[in-house]
Amino acid sequence: MAKAKGAIVVDTVTCKGCNICVSACPTQVIKLADQVNGKGYHYAYMANPDACTGCSNCAIMCPDTCITVYRVKQTSAEPTIH
């Protein structure tokens, strides 16, 4: 079966660093940055991008809708042998 692989883009200007996306991610992709944005919030970023499946849980949970999600269906390089 094709394996999905995803990526998120966080709007770091509007992110309020609430940590809700971090706790909603089933594969621990997201962390809050040590740096702060213009409003003084530690914004969210992909700390572990390889683990993102593109499930969108973080994005639908974000109260400020700061996250955009992308997902590709992986096509296996080798033909599947049945």
């Binding site: 692989k5 995803g6 990526a7 883009v9 992909m46 991008p49 390889d50 993102c52 593109g54 969108s56 994005a59 639908i60 809708t65 996250i67 955009t68 999600v69 992308y70 997902r71 590709v72 992986q74």
Partner: peptide, 19 residues
């Protein structure tokens, strides 16, 4: 596995803020 920067392209978009 695809790299994060190639994944971030319009054809792979699955969730964005509604207009």
């Amino acid at each position: 596995m695809a790299d994060t920067y190639t994944i971030i392209s319009p054809e792979n978009l699955v969730y964005k803020k509604t207009d």
